[in-house]
Computed example of a mutant assay.
Amino acid sequence: MATAPQPTLPLFYNDLMPLNSRDHAKYRSNPGDGLTWLVNQHAVPLTSDEFIQAQRHFPIVFSSGEGSVPLALMGLNEGVNTFIDDGGKLIEDVYIPAYARRYPFLLARLAPDAQELSLCFDPASGLLTETDTGEALFEDDGKPAPLVQGALEFCQKFEEAGARTQAFVQELINKDLLMDGEIAITRNDDPDKPYIYRGFKMINEEKLRELDAETAKLWTGNGIMALIFAHLFSMDMMRHIFGRQAAQGKVPEQQGQPAA
């Protein structure tokens, strides 16, 4: 079975294979016991379409370096997810970003010059296997079963949301609104030793206040300003996530750990 080109695989994916009725006619879904791919994952990519929902649960930050993308922080330190236990089960009900919900499926180009995206999956996930139990991926006549049709539609919508997200971030970059972020959090039992979190970008509120009236009016009308405020409001969740880590005994000894 052919494997899709994979110079670098996205977060969560260990392998990538095109899904087709010839090679995977007998494959069925095997949901497993939980969201195992989220275990120990503290930062999950987020689309701008999800900001309003996500800001109620997580801090929303932007990755550092070039090609900045929005991230939902499910923990403040590498290897810490305060919402998923070691078995991949939710500790409490929480919004799961679409990036994580689409796994193990992914739309990818099978060749560098390919114009169309093909539905692929991670065969290493163990979520789609040749078995007698679970929901079928293909009908007896080879047509995609509802599960595959739903996965394809979800992935297509995710790609569309990803394009809107890139356009949103580019607007922020064009106006030089992203700056290196830093958050200091102190524990009540040791107020003299703050935990300093860096390694992410956030909106520069001073430059936002200096935004020209024409752009401010345009962004208010097209929804960009609402996304900006959702991000800014979500930053209060930093302390909430830190509190969750402290309650779970997952606050490290050392200072200055990167959040993203």
Rank of each mutant, 00 (worst) to 15 (best):
R209M: 15
A213K: 12
P112Q: 05
G87S: 11
G88C: 04
V39Y: 06
L152E: 10
P104R: 01
L208V: 06
P258F: 02
A145R: 03
Q254H: 07
K175R: 14
I96T: 14
A43W: 00
L211N: 07
G65E: 12
Q115D: 14
A260H: 03
F154V: 00
C155S: 13
N204R: 08
A259N: 07
T220L: 09
R164I: 07
E206L: 06
L19F: 14
E135C: 02
N77C: 15
L9C: 14
N20S: 09
Q115C: 02
A72T: 11
A25W: 06
R239M: 04
A145I: 01
P191S: 13
E130V: 06
A98W: 00
K217S: 15
K250N: 09
R22E: 14
Y27L: 03
L46G: 05
E206D: 14
G34Q: 08
D122A: 00
E92H: 12
Y13C: 12
Y195W: 11
L38I: 08
G88P: 03
G134S: 03
F233W: 12
T133S: 13
E160L: 12
L147H: 14
A111R: 13
L218V: 13
C120V: 06
F12W: 05
F58N: 05
Q41C: 07
I196P: 01
K217H: 07
E139H: 15
L35V: 11
N14E: 15
V94Y: 06
A163P: 00
T129H: 03
R56C: 04
V94P: 02
K89Y: 00
G181I: 04
A43Q: 09
G243C: 03
S21G: 06
L90D: 10
D140S: 15
V148M: 09
P10G: 08
L178P: 15
G223A: 10
L128C: 05
P18D: 11
Q257L: 11
R239E: 09
L35M: 12
M179D: 06
F12Q: 06
L110Y: 08
D15I: 01
K157H: 14
Q245G: 08
N174S: 12
P252W: 00
E139N: 15
F12L: 12
R56M: 13
A246C: 00
Q248F: 03
D141N: 15
N20L: 05
P45M: 03
L137M: 12
P194Y: 00
E92W: 05
F83T: 09
L73W: 02
D180H: 04
Y197E: 05
D86C: 02
S125N: 08
L38F: 03
L16G: 08
R56K: 13
T3H: 13
T220S: 15
G34A: 08
P31V: 06
G142T: 12
I173E: 14
I203M: 08
